[in-house]
């Protein structure tokens, strides 16, 4: 499934990386602990988090995350957007809490197990 379909279905706002929304999503991971994401996320995951600081970009790039969804109406910091833009990493935002987003993604066939 492509990120564009997820953006449409979950009504996500795209904060940056609009050109890279045709990336394929293979699964999902939800965590706010960066070491946990480093250890357990997988390539091609969509990452659901409340973290909005620039370090999420490095984690996402190292783990080849397809895109980040920031929850509860939290907006990425300016440096986060700058870094993500230069790396071509899509960041999306939503007013919904993590539980809601993960549930909707699961319904769409995005799983945390692969």
């Amino acid at each position: 499934m492509k990120l564009t379909e997820i953006v449409k279905s979950l009504n996500l706002q795209v904060a940056c990386g609009e050109q890279q929304l045709d990336k394929e999503v293979c699964g999902g991971y939800s965590s706010d602990l960066l070491s946990d994401v480093m250890a357990n996320s997988k390539k091609g995951d969509v990452w659901i988090t409340l973290q909005v600081h620039p370090n999420v970009v490095a984690v996402a790039m190292l783990k080849e995350i397809a895109g980040i969804v920031m929850i509860n109406g939290r907006m990425p910091e300016k440096e986060t957007i700058e870094k993500a833009e230069s790396e071509g990493l899509p960041i999306m935002t939503s007013d919904s809490p993590a539980f809601e987003l993960v549930g909707r993604l699961y319904e769409m066939g995005i799983s945390g197990k692969r």
Binding site: D32, L33, L34, S35, D36, M38, A39, T49, Q51
Partner: peptide, 15 residues
């Protein structure tokens, strides 16, 4: 609060 300090760093490295 930034999501660091989970106490997983050194164990992750070792693993």
């Amino acid at each position: 609060e930034m999501g660091f300090g989970a106490g997983m760093g050194l164990p992750n490295i070792k693993k």
